[in-house]
């Protein structure tokens, strides 16, 4: 065991952590923006709309992230006509391909979480909103979604953590994320234990930070659900 190689390569690990966090944060934010309309579409009474959302969600939840990444990165690279369009400037970059596949993937999972939370809205809340004469739109944004967001928080924190861990596949398409850096250090010094243990510990720290942050949010948002103390 020789952890001096880790000390020597610490800046590399920090760069890897930066890339991982950036990829995960961006894909979660963009993915959430796609997930919200998707969850509403899934609830739609128009068949074509709800079937589209259903198909999207089941494709991305039904296939591994790694396969989706390979299809986008290596698969699309084989289409000659794509290379003649402006889109190729984006698809040429491994970073864009990773971001795209992570975003599409997390959008599907998040949409299911939001849909579940909406479906679990207590009847009384909706009835009260109707009794007040709220329009369906107002009902959705004033009553149902805020209430669903509270319920979804816990399940969504799992999705954040899954995404963080899932992002480790980025290393396979030449990106130097936290796992990619570990592979690099491993192949340079032939020390798999030190190299991967270090990135494992960093993932662990980030995971704990996420858990703590969600807990703080829950304390705030779920204050009304806590038993009252005198």
């Amino acid at each position: 065991m020789d952890f001096s190689i880790i000390a020597d390569n610490w800046p590399l690990y920090m760069q890897g952590l930066g890339l991982t966090l950036q990829l995960v944060a961006l894909s979660l934010v963009i993915g959430f923006c796609i997930a919200l309309p998707l969850a509403l579409m899934r609830q739609s009474s128009i068949k074509a709309v709800s079937w589209f959302a259903w198909g999207y969600i089941y494709f991305f939840r039904g296939t591994p992230l790694l396969v989706q990444l390979f299809i986008i990165y290596f698969g699309l690279g084989q289409w000659e006509w794509l290379k003649t369009t402006w889109a190729w400037d984006l698809f040429k970059e491994a970073y864009f391909c990773a971001l795209l596949s992570f975003t599409l993937n997390t959008a599907a999972y998040s949409a299911e979480i939001i849909r579940g939370a909406i479906a679990a809205t207590p009847h009384g809340e909706v009835e009260a909103a109707v009794a007040y004469g709220m329009s369906p739109f107002k009902r959705m944004f004033r009553i149902i979604l805020p209430s669903a967001a509270r319920r979804a928080l816990h399940a969504y924190s799992n999705e954040i953590i899954f995404m963080l861990h899932g992002s480790s596949v980025a290393g396979i398409i030449t990106l130097n994320d936290l796992t990619g850096v570990a592979r690099l250090v491993n192949s340079r010094y032939y020390s798999p234990f030190e190299a991967f243990l270090t990135s494992g510990l960093i993932y662990l720290c980030v995971t704990f930070a996420i858990v703590a942050a969600v807990k703080a949010l829950e304390n705030r948002w779920h204050a009304h659900l806590r038993p009252r103390t005198a």
């Binding site: 290596f74 690279g77 084989q78 290379k83 190729w88 040429k92 970059e93 030449t174 690099l184």
Partner: peptide
């Protein structure tokens, strides 16, 4: 420097223009 796990993947990306 863009690093690949296998030489075959590197050939693919050269053809893709990456």
């Amino acid at each position: 420097i863009v690093r690949y796990g296998t030489q075959d993947e590197a050939y693919l990306d050269l053809q893709a223009g990456r």
